[in-house]
Design a protein around this nucleic acid. Sequence first.
DNA 1: TTGAAAGCGCTAACAT
DNA 2: ATGTTAGCGCTTTCAA
Lengths: 333, 333
Amino acid sequence: MTALDVAREAGVSQSAVSRAFTPGASVSEKTRTRVLAAAEKLGYRPNPLARSLMHGRSGIVGVGVGNMENPFFVRTLELLATALDAAGLRLMLFPATRDHDAEPSLQEVLHYRIDALVLLSVNLSSNLADQCRKARVPVIHFNRTSADAGTSSIIGDNAAGARTIAAHLLAGGHRAMAYMAGTPDSSTNRQREEAFTAALLSAGLPAPIIEHGHFTHEGAMAATRRLLLREDRPDALFCANDTMALAAISVARHELGLDVGREISIVGYDDVPMAAWPGFALTTFSQPCEGMVARTVEMIEALRREPESHAHHVAQGALVVRSSTRPVVARAR
Amino acid sequence: MTALDVAREAGVSQSAVSRAFTPGASVSEKTRTRVLAAAEKLGYRPNPLARSLMHGRSGIVGVGVGNMENPFFVRTLELLATALDAAGLRLMLFPATRDHDAEPSLQEVLHYRIDALVLLSVNLSSNLADQCRKARVPVIHFNRTSADAGTSSIIGDNAAGARTIAAHLLAGGHRAMAYMAGTPDSSTNRQREEAFTAALLSAGLPAPIIEHGHFTHEGAMAATRRLLLREDRPDALFCANDTMALAAISVARHELGLDVGREISIVGYDDVPMAAWPGFALTTFSQPCEGMVARTVEMIEALRREPESHAHHVAQGALVVRSSTRPVVARAR
DNA sequence: TTGAAAGCGCTAACAT
DNA sequence: ATGTTAGCGCTTTCAA
C-alpha cells in the first residue's frame, strides 16, 4: 500500500495524500477526510523510512544503557519505552557497557537519523559528542551530567540527597562513616561523595572512609569486606546506589554476622523495589523515576521543534527511612 | 556524505560505490579498494534508511517485552542487545505489557520494515500474527510457544524442569505440594504445571494445590498468603518463576515466621542472580539464557536468507540446589 | 566489469 | 487548495 494507491482510490493526486497526513499542511477538509477514508479502507500508513529520507529525521530515539544490573535503570528503560511509544516515537536500544566499546554501536545508531540520543548513566566520549553535534542529534544525559556543551541532562539533586543522608546518620548517633563509591569518573558519584564529605566535615567529623564498589553487586561485595574487616570498622555506610547497598547488607549480615540497623547502618540511593522488601528494609534516597522520564520525553519533544533548546533539569527526591539504619536518637541537650 | 561524494572522490560512478558496499556484487578488486579508501577518507557509510527503501528490510529487529520485573528477561534483553549489535542489526524495543495494549505499538514497529520480530514472553494476537505473515516478518517467540503456524520459538524444556523439581521435592520427603502458577494462558506456565502434576500423580500423590501469582512479585505475595494460611498447609512450593519464589520466601519468612528450607521448601525457575544471594539461597531450575539468546540470533540470521525456515528450539537446563529446599533424605529400604 | 538511468515511497518547491 | 515535478540516498536493471 503506497500513497499512490490511496490517491487513486480517493481520486486525488499523490501529494494530496501526503498533505492529508502532514499536520500543518494546506488541504481542504473535504479532501483530507476523503483521503483518510481511502487510507483507512486500504489499511495505509505513510512509510516512516521513506518519510525520514526526505526530512532527515526518522522518529527514532536512540537509547544507550550501561548497567542493566541496576533495577533503577531497568525501570527507567521500561517507563521510557512506554512514554516514547505514547509520543509516537520509536526506541532503538544499544548496549553501552564499559567493556564492550560502545563507539561502533552508537555510530551505527547515528546512521538511522535518530531524533535524539538518550544516555542512561553512560559517558559520551568527546569524539562521539562531536559527531552528534555535527549530525545535529540532540544528546540527553540521564542521571549524569556532561562537560560537553550543547547537551541536555536530567539528574536528581545528588547534593541534597547526600546531605539528607548525612544528617540522618548523624542524628542516629553515628560518628564513624564510610562511603561506598560507584565508578569514580561519573558525575553522579562525585556529587554524592563530595556533598556527603562536606556535610561530615561541617559537622566536625573526619571525611568518610572510601571504598569503590563500581555501582555493581560484585564490586560492592568485595568493597564491603574490605570496609568491615578493618580495625577501625565504620558503623555507618552510605552506598552510592541501592544495588551496592543490597550487596553490602548481604555481606554484613550473612558473611560477617552483623545486625544491620543496629551494629551497622547501611543507606542506599534510588529506592528500587527490592529496597522495600522486608528482608532488606533499606533506608534509601528515592529518585522520582517517573517524573524524570516524563521530563526526558518533554525535552525530546522540545528539541524536535527547537534543536538548540538544550536544558538541564534537576529533580528532587526524598529520604525513605526503613530499618537498615539506626533509629534517630533524641538529642541530648 | 553521500555515495555521490565518494564516487567523485574515487573517480568512479555512484553505482560503483553501491556495489563496493554490496557483499556479492560484481566489482573489480581494484575499484572496490579504491572506493573503500575514498569512503574511509570521507567517513562515509551507506545510509541504511535509503538502503531499506529499496530492498524492504531495514536491518532492525523489533523486540517486544512484557514483564521487565523479571530479571531473567532483563538479562535476556541485555544479551540480545549485545548479540544483535555484534550481528550488525539494530534493536527496536517496544512495550508489550498486558494492560497497555501492545497492538498499536507493534503495528507502528512493523512499519519500519523490520527483519524479524522477537517476543519475550509475550503473546501475539492472531490478528497481529496475520499481519506479520502478510508483511513477511518472521516472528520468534522467546520462552513461549504459539499456536500460530509459521512462527519460530525458543524455549526451555519445561517438562523436564518440572519433573526434576518434583523428583527433588519427593526425595526431600515432601508429600503436601503446592504449585504457584504464572499467567494461566502462557504455554510456559501450562507446561510446567502439567508436568509437575503428572510427576506427582505418578508417584501416587494427589495433584498439587494451585494458586495464581501471575509471574509478578505482588501477585506472588498474595498467593503465598492464601497458600500458607490454609488448614492443610503444604510443606513444599514450586513457583513458576524466581520472581514469585523470592516473594514467597519473603512472605513465608518475614510475615509468617517460617523457617524456609526446613518447615517449608520453596523452588523457583530461571536461576536469576538474586537466587544465589545468601539471604535467599533459592533452589531453582536454571535456564541457559546465553545459549537461548545465541540461538535466537542464529535463527534471525537464517530467517534473513531463508524466510520460510522457521524452527523450534528447546534448550536444556539444570536444577541448582541451594538451601531453600530440605536436603534430600536417605531413602529407607 | 562498469556507467547511465529508473525507481523505492515520500516531501516540498513550484505552478496553477 | 491542488496537481506537477524534482529530489532524499540508495539499489538494480539495462546497455555498453
